[in-house]
C-alpha cells in the first residue's frame, strides 16, 4: 500500500467521522467543529490531488472565515442543546430505507462502472501527470471565466447588502 493510499484512507476516515459527528452531535459547537474536521481532511485530499491552491483557499475561506462565522453566531445566539424530535412514520419506514438504498446504489454504480472504465482507459494508473499550477488556474479564471468571476463579485455585494438589511434592527 502506497503512502498516498494511506493518506487517502486516513483523511477519508476523518472526513466521514466528521460528517457523522456533525449529524450526531447535539451541541451546535460540536457540530461546527466536526465540520471543520471534514474541511481540513478535504484540504489534505486536495493536496493529494495536486491542487495546492484550492487546498489553501479551502482552509482560508471555509475553515478560517465561514465556520468562524458559524461559531460566532452560535455563541452570539447562545444556541443550546438541540431538541430532538421523533421522525414521522412515513420518514422512518419509507424515507430512511429509501435513502440508504439510494446511497448504496450510487456507491455501487460509481465503483463498478467507473473503476472498470478507468482501469480500461489508463491501465489502472490514474490522475493526470501535472499538478495544477496557480498561474494556469488564474489565467483560466481571468480569461475564459472572467464574466462569471465578475458576477460572483456582484453576488457577494448583494449578499453583504442582504445580510446588513436582515441583521439591522427594525426600529432603527
Amino acid at each position: 500500500m502506497s503512502v498516498a493510499m494511506l493518506v487517502f484512507i486516513a483523511c477519508g476516515l476523518f472526513a466521514v467521522l466528521g460528517a457523522v459527528g456533525l449529524i450526531l452531535a447535539r451541541e451546535p459547537v460540536h457540530s461546527a467543529l466536526s465540520l471543520v474536521l471534514v474541511m481540513v481532511a478535504l484540504a489534505v485530499l486536495y493536496l493529494l490531488l495536486g491542487a495546492a491552491f484550492i487546498a489553501a483557499i479551502q482552509i482560508l475561506v471555509y475553515a478560517g472565515a465561514v465556520m468562524v462565522l458559524f461559531i460566532f453566531v452560535i455563541m452570539l445566539l447562545n444556541a443550546g442543546v438541540e431538541v430532538r424530535t421523533n421522525l414521522s412514520h412515513l420518514a422512518r419506514w419509507v424515507g430512511l430505507p429509501l435513502a440508504i438504498l439510494f446511497l448504496a446504489e450510487m456507491t455501487y454504480s460509481l465503483f463498478h462502472e467507473y473503476a472498470a472504465r478507468t482501469a480500461l482507459a489508463a491501465g489502472g494508473a490514474v490522475a493526470g501527470p501535472v499538478p495544477a499550477s496557480t498561474e494556469e488556474l488564474s489565467m483560466k479564471l481571468f480569461t475564459e471565466y472572467v464574466l462569471p468571476f465578475e458576477l460572483t463579485s456582484i453576488l457577494i455585494l448583494i449578499a453583504i447588502l442582504g445580510a446588513l438589511v436582515l441583521a439591522k434592527k427594525e426600529s432603527a
Binding site: 502506497s2 498516498a4 493510499m5 487517502f8 477519508g12 472526513a15 466521514v16 460528517a19 457523522v20 456533525l22 449529524i23 451546535p28 457540530s31 471534514v38 485530499l45 493529494l48 490531488l49 444556541a79 438541540e82 431538541v83 430532538r84 424530535t85 421522525l87 420518514a91 424515507g95 435513502a99 439510494f102 446511497l103 450510487m106 456507491t107 460509481l110 465503483f111 467507473y114 473503476a115 478507468t118 489502472g124 494508473a125 490514474v126 490522475a127
Partner: peptide, 28 residues
Amino acid sequence: MVPISYYVILSGVLFGLGVIGFVFKRNI
C-alpha cells in the same frame, strides 16, 4: 496512486451524510 473512483465514492458518501443531516437536524 489512489484511483479517482475512491474520491468520487467518498464525495458521494459525504454528500449523502449531508442530505441526512439536512433532513434530520432541527437547529437552523
